[in-house]
């Protein structure tokens, strides 16, 4: 169920529209004589998109995420087609849990602005965040990572970032040095920043960690003092530094980076060496990783597709500090500096 375009896109107008939306959903309850709709909200989730994205995929992903993370979803799109500068539309995302009669509904607000209005988006959002709940910014706007972003783009983004308790970006395909420096700057400003490139590594990290869950004495992780990380791109991407940082952080193991031909893009393989054993993880196809060790261990792992939905679903489950990422990131910065 969605509304007509709301203009002017002022917080009071939008909130009034939301009120009407819930009233109309409630009418159904009156007819049926029992509660049929339940409103759910555990956070405000803002997706900031740009002209290329035009909000479509973000809107779709937020709809999918509503089941696990009921939220007030706000999709910010930039488009020349916003006839009146900034305009809004509201809708309810509803689903019926398996075997239940009652629908659970979340609200979604779509705000579209012309590029020249983008710097003024912040004040609208201040009035729209759900009270006392976390505000997560999923930043898909190119201005976030692009050094060539205009001052207007940066100003608009900064206003939105200042509202957020957590910022999620995606450095996939970005230059590692630039991306890590930018994240370091935000972190130094005490912003809680997550990177979906780190989230993508969970499927690598989990099987690697499991090997050291119940190790025999001579194969405990502390014995593996040498790590090699291989990649397929011309230059190592952020995820290569992240995984190296994660593996090296606990005991300061030495790390070597190596460019190879193989499945990619990005991270291709990891070799861990101890005096008595070498363990290799290698991506052998787009959906498979293999483990081989000199002690005869061998296993294949399926890589499930990392869709935006699965990545965001994982990331929204970690709303507070992420100690593993913090440690890996700190070490990744050192590795980038050649330390």
């Amino acid at each position: 169920m969605s509304s007509a375009v709301i203009f002017p896109a002022q917080p009071e107008q939008i909130l009034k529209g939301l009120g009407k939306l819930w009233t109309s959903l409630g009418q159904e309850e009156k007819h049926q004589g029992r509660p049929t709709v339940l409103r759910a909200c555990a956070m405000t989730l803002i997706a900031a998109t740009d002209e290329e994205d035009s909000g479509f995929s973000a809107s779709q992903t937020i709809s999918e995420l509503m089941r696990e993370h009921p939220s007030r979803g706000i999709v910010l799109a930039v488009s020349q087609q916003a006839e009146r500068g900034v305009e809004a539309r509201i809708l309810a995302q509803c689903w019926k849990p398996f075997g239940k009669a009652q629908q659970i509904c979340c609200e979604q607000i779509e705000i579209t602005s012309r590029p020249e209005n983008w710097p003024n988006i912040g004040p609208i959002l201040i009035g729209l965040t759900a009270a006392d709940l976390p505000v997560v910014l999923w930043c898909r706007h190119k201005a976030a990572l692009s050094p060539s972003a205009t001052a207007d783009q940066k100003a608009g983004l900064l206003a939105v970032m200042n509202l957020a308790t957590k910022i999620i970006i995606d450095t996939k395909g970005e230059d590692a040095t630039q991306a890590i420096e930018l994240l370091a700057k935000w972190r130094a400003e005490r912003r809680l920043v997550a990177d979906l490139e780190w989230t993508r590594l969970t499927r690598w990290r989990q099987p690697i960690a499991q090997i050291f869950d119940n190790p025999s004495t001579d194969s405990s992780f502390s014995k593996f003092g040498s790590i090699e990380v291989s990649y397929t791109d011309e230059k190592p991407c952020p995820s290569v530094f992240y995984i190296a940082g994660w593996l090296s952080a606990p005991y300061g193991a030495k790390v070597a980076f190596k460019k190879v031909e193989g499945y990619g893009p990005g991270l291709h393989g990891i070799t861990l060496r101890s005096p008595s054993e070498t363990i290799e993880f290698e991506r052998t196809s787009c959906d498979c990783m293999s483990l081989r060790s000199t002690k005869g261990r061998e296993r294949k792992y399926n890589f499930n597709d990392s869709t935006l939905y699965t990545l965001m679903n994982e990331e929204l489950s970690v709303l507070g500090p992420d100690p593993a990422f913090n440690a890996a990131f700190a070490r990744a910065e050192e590795l980038l500096d050649g330390r």
Partner: peptide, 12 residues
């Protein structure tokens, strides 16, 4: 040794 790679926030 406690597994230093364990990530209770994210791993199943």
């Amino acid at each position: 040794e406690i597994n230093p790679l364990q990530d209770y926030l994210r791993f199943d």
